[in-house]
Simulated assay, not measured.
Amino acid sequence: MRLRREQPADHDSVRDVHLHAFGEHDHGLVVARLVDDLRAEATLSLVAEAPDSGRVVGSVMFTPALLDAPLRLLDVQVLSPLAVAPAHQRQGIGQALVREGLRLLTELHVPLVFLEGDPAYYSRLGFTPGGAHAFRKPSLRIPDAAFQVATLPAYEPWMTGTLVYSPTFWHHDCVGLR
């Protein structure tokens, strides 16, 4: 498997990965549209290529958000969405994409990465419940267990507060359970 930054030629393939991973009907279409719109603001968008075919089989995006901290607004990142084509799931592709993304964000001195997701999956990648660090979720629709954060080396203890998603997530109503 080869991990690399998404290129313009990958857009259709990335869209297909999200459609297939999230279902080709309502939810998959919403996520695919979200990806299309987030692309313009993404800090980092990575893809995984299948070793045999070179086809894009996985995708992850990291986009800017704000943390409304007591001292000042702080630039942070949101991991969303992450998708792996169904035929390639359970092979470590998603984990590899997330780990590489966190490594690259560490090099950019990003202090915090937030997400909404399955704690059983993301805890293996260094994410912990946001509430345990006194972070507040941006919506009551997000289950407490799903609101998670990874603290990177640039994190400092004063960095606490409320996560503020970019307007794109709100525009697509992609916050919390649906």
Rank of each mutant, 00 (worst) to 15 (best):
V60H: 04
F62D: 15
T63R: 05
P64A: 05
P64V: 11
A65G: 05
A65I: 10
D68W: 03
D68V: 12
A69K: 02
A69V: 11
R72W: 05
L73E: 14
L73M: 09
L74F: 08
L74A: 07
D75C: 02
D75A: 13
V76I: 10
Q77W: 00
L79W: 01
L79Y: 01
S80R: 01
P81F: 09
A83F: 02
V84Y: 03
A85I: 08
A85G: 00
A85N: 09
P86R: 02
A87W: 01
A87L: 08
H88Y: 11
H88G: 04
Q89P: 01
Q91M: 15
G92C: 00
I93F: 04
G94Y: 08
G94K: 00
Q95A: 12
A96F: 01
L97W: 01
L97V: 08
V98R: 03
V98I: 10
G101K: 04
L102G: 10
R103T: 07
R103G: 11
L104M: 13
L105F: 12
T106F: 01
T106H: 02
L108V: 08
F114H: 04
L115F: 06
L115K: 04
E116F: 00
E116W: 00
E116C: 06
G117D: 06
D118K: 00
P119E: 10
A120W: 09
A120T: 15
Y121E: 13
Y121D: 03
Y121V: 15
Y121I: 07
Y122M: 06
S123N: 13
R124P: 03
R124S: 05
L125D: 02
G126S: 07
T128N: 05
P129I: 02
P129Y: 07
G130V: 13
G130A: 11
G131C: 01
G131M: 00
H133T: 05
A134G: 07
F135N: 12
F135S: 04
F135H: 05
R136I: 07
R136S: 13
R136Q: 10
K137S: 14
K137I: 12
S139L: 07
S139D: 08
L140T: 14
L140C: 03
L140N: 12
L140H: 09
R141F: 03
I142Q: 05
I142L: 10
P143F: 01
D144R: 04
D144G: 06
D144L: 14
F147R: 10
F147N: 09
V149F: 09
A150C: 07
T151A: 13
L152E: 12
P153E: 14
P153G: 10
A154M: 06
A154W: 04
A154H: 11
E156L: 14
P157N: 05
W158T: 06
W158D: 12
G161T: 15
T162W: 00
T162I: 03
L163R: 06
Y165C: 15
